[in-house]
């Protein structure tokens, strides 16, 4: 598979992970107060400030078959290190804070009085989430999703440590650029650099239009 398609596939799968887990965690953090909430919030944001290589190292230690969790996964035939799954996990973890932070702000900007009214009208928490919270927060959620996808597309440091640089399996665009430069193929590297720049720039322009109300999506 070409580095471009592989990158899109891995970033797409990472985005699915991020949307499901990030939305759930952002909602729970909005809804409940508990001791240690600030610490947990900081932990969720940690991959944003840590060097990706550090994130990759920690993931490698967790998923390595030499350690207990990796060994436990291995007994079920699940291997993460030097596989596509590893690349997806690395991209998910590194890009997660961008979605989580934006989603949390978006969910918290929804007027709780409106949700309270829905409660008094007999709506379940799940129905309120689907019919009130999500539609009112969709702009922030889409923005967060695009930012996380863009970040996942450009992921390098954590991926190379956890998933390696295997052509057709884990060699995404950033890793392919690294390899081409290493081999001295600057034309090939320029081609991929231009590709990834245009792609991420388009996504960021879309976010800009979205946040500046130039795009209206009827719900």
């Amino acid at each position: 598979m070409s580095p471009l398609l592989l990158s899109l596939e891995i970033a797409g799968l990472a985005l699915i992970n991020i949307l499901v887990i990030g939305l759930l965690l952002a909602y729970l953090m909005k809804r409940y107060n508990f001791i240690g909430k600030a610490l947990l919030d900081a932990i969720f944001m940690l991959p944003l400030v840590l060097p990706p290589v550090v994130v990759g190292f920690v993931l490698l230690m967790i998923f390595s078959p030499a350690n207990w969790f990796g060994a436990w996964l291995d007994t079920y035939g699940l291997t993460v290190v030097f596989t596509k799954a590893g690349a997806v996990i690395a991209a998910s973890v590194v890009a997660f804070p961008l979605f989580y932070q934006t989603a949390r702000s978006a969910l918290e900007s929804v007027n709780t009085d409106i949700e309270d009214v829905a409660r008094t009208l007999g709506a379940s928490e799940w129905r309120i989430f689907l019919t009130i919270t999500i539609p009112l927060a969709w702009k922030g959620l889409v923005t967060g999703g695009i930012l996380a996808f863009s970040r996942a597309l450009g992921e390098f440091g954590a991926t190379i440590l956890l998933a390696g640089n295997i052509p057709g399996v884990t060699r995404t665009m950033p890793l392919a650029i690294y390899s081409l430069v290493e081999y001295g193929d600057y034309d090939g590297a320029w081609f991929l650099v231009a590709y990834i720049c245009i792609l991420t720039l388009s996504l960021l322009c879309f976010v800009h239009l979205l946040t500046h109300k130039k795009i209206g999506i009827r719900l």
Partner: peptide, 20 residues
């Protein structure tokens, strides 16, 4: 009893329609 079980008509302050 949760609000869903109380049969209360509640109008908080401000504009509280479901705007969308």
């Amino acid at each position: 009893k949760k609000p869903q079980e109380r049969r209360v008509g509640y109008m908080p302050q401000g504009n509280i329609v479901f705007p969308h």
